[in-house]
Design a protein around this nucleic acid. Structure first.
Lengths: 362, 362
DNA sequence: CTGAAAGCGCTTACAG
DNA sequence: CTGAAAGCGCTTACAG
């Protein structure tokens, strides 16, 4: 009874066709050394019998599961769907399955999640680390997806450049007084985005940054960000590090009776689902997740397959079996550039958006 | 070289301890028949050697992979993070891993995704079907998560009841003229939500339903829903089938200069990430995903384990091996009730929310 | 071009 | 309480 399967196995196909199971294996895998007509016959029989290869058998024999693990910092992140979908597609195209693990924002959980994944025999790991966390030694190749400024990172969007694009756009519209809205000052990604924004400011430009987490620590979600004061002080453009915060800004402004984009321009990041459908639609920065996933998966697979594939070419791989050190895929970080998506939430700066005390304009 | 692993296997532990691998297996699995002191010694040695059990070996022998497949209709659905996270936690607690597959909104892809999962040897499948799709015969137990009105469904939130809660709340606030906003008239979930809403209307209440997909077919995302007209015609409360649409409604209203909730109340569904942070925060209906996932996974596991566990108790399982028919876990659908979350987007109806022509109030 | 044989790591009757 | 043996399904040198 043990290990019995519903469908037929190679031995049964072999019996039906009248050949050995080795030949069936070779025919099905297309590794040649079988006559075309036999291949044909074996394939037909397999299909007819509804043969489904056993992953367990293959994995045990080859030492590979053809499954990759995806470790996410926080599955409830609104960007997660995009990430998971892109990874699933990229892995699937390369013949790999994706096992997910949520580290729930916690470093300990992240470690446990990785351990569980390893036990399940994954061939490699894609890790989206929690805020600049470093991954300790892991018994399989790892691809890290983070911001370029994180050391040991494999691939990421160029958040810095994305920030630059946002501000360049706003400056072209005549804005010179900015408010940057971040959430968590410990986030590398957010710092890179804001860093990029600041990097293209001209000497005369004004700017200020607020961090929601610090600002609102302990208060309920609904608390105001105090945007009205900033606007009164002359801010004409508010650039957030995420569409989620841009949305918060937008609705707070609208509720306060400030017109967006007529009086104040608002921008976000990430092109989340809701961004195109709100009024005004959010101008944001889109990240090519498909591309990022492809690069991450490709790097991983190269590493997984290299050691066995070509032992005569050791340079191909930087994965050190048994090493207690980093075996993260260490190729220089690939930066995937981000793309500005211009929608309706920005408009030319009006010379005096601030109601000047005496009412005169300019 | 083939199948070589980094760590030690049972045979090696057996050699070190000086017993047979069978004893190691028994000791580690805790299946008894091994003296306590030997168990102790074996465990210690295993830990010391850094033994990690091979899933492949176990799977091949037992015929079980301890991996479940999660088939999603559309990973980009904003509710997906909640679903995936809940499923991952529930499965993980039960000792199972979760392999994801995105059917990308397509029925064909859904079928392929299921096939791929089966090939990878999953023991069972959790399927969130695409709009009332039925799943054909599958070679493993399946738990369907949909709305109670979908036949063959295993567990779901009680969307109908959720709709009732929304309208009861709005009626308590004095509203009698409603606009229901759906997206896709073919969605069972959305129809159930709106059905529940309508079911608690009183004879004198007015209501109308608009379906975004039909209304906006072919037009760009940013197109207006024409809400202003409805408000002018007396609508004082707009209930959407999702927070995503409620958000769209909210921002469209705000941009048009209509105050929410003072002039018009707005409600959503699903308690998405952004709902608590927009202004006004969205009153919505929360779904206990954790509970739903637990029920789905429990049903699945019962089915997976029953046939082998107790062949003397056939009633325990309704999974028919080799049957060409439905092998969906067929227990009567468990309905998990939804919970109204009252936040700031609703207010008492004002007798005359419509700006009366001559400007007088009341 | 094809087959016999070994073995990946585990678990489970069975015998002692 | 412990061990020898078989076998889950596959692939890969190796021999013919």
């Amino acid at each position: 009874m043990a290990g019995s399967r519903s469908g037929p196995n190679m031995t049964q196909i072999a019996k039906v066709v009248g050949v050995s199971s080795a030949t069936v294996s070779n025919a099905l895998s297309g590794k040649g050394r079988v006559s075309p007509k036999l291949v044909e016959k074996i394939r037909a029989t397999a299909a007819e019998l509804g043969y489904v290869p056993s992953n367990a058998g293959r994995a045990l024999r080859t030492g590979r599961s053809n499954v990759l693990g995806l470790v996410l910092p926080d599955i409830s992140n609104p960007l997660f769907p995009q990430i998971a979908q892109a990874m699933e597609v990229a892995a699937s195209n390369a013949g790999y399955g994706v096992l997910i693990a949520d580290s729930r924002g916690d470093v300990t959980t992240q470690t446990q999640a990785i351990a569980r994944l390893i036990e399940r025999g994954v061939d490699g790991l894609v890790v989206i680390p929690r805020r600049g966390t470093r991954i300790g030694s892991v018994a399989c190749p790892v691809a890290m997806v983070d911001t370029p400024s994180t050391p040991g990172n494999t691939v990421s969007a160029d958040h810095w450049e994305g920030g630059q694009q946002v501000i360049r756009h706003l400056k072209e519209l005549g804005h010179h007084n900015f408010l940057f809205v971040g959430h968590d000052p410990a986030s590398n990604v957010q710092n890179d985005r804001i860093g990029g924004m600041k990097s293209v400011l001209a000497p005369g430009d004004k700017h200020q940054t607020i961090w929601i987490e610090s600002l609102l620590a302990g208060t309920p979600d609904q608390t105001s960000l105090g945007l009205l004061d900033h606007v009164k002080n002359g801010v004409t453009a508010i650039a957030a590090v995420s569409d989620l915060h841009a949305l918060r800004v937008l609705t707070e402004l609208q509720t306060a009776g400030i017109k967006v984009p007529e009086q104040v321009s608002v921008t976000g990041f990430d092109d989340l689902v809701f961004s195109p459908v709100v009024t005004p639609a959010l101008t944001t920065v889109h990240m090519n997740m498909t591309r990022i996933a492809e690069i991450a998966i490709a790097a991983l697979i190269k590493d997984i397959e290299a050691p066995r594939a070509s032992p005569d070419d050791p340079d191909t791989s930087n994965y050190k079996t048994g090493s207690t050190d980093q075996n993260t895929v260490k190729a220089d970080t690939s930066k995937v550039s981000m793309q500005l998506v211009v929608r309706g939430s920005c408009a030319p700066a009006v010379p005096s958006a601030t109601p000047s005390p005496n009412g005169e304009t300019l």
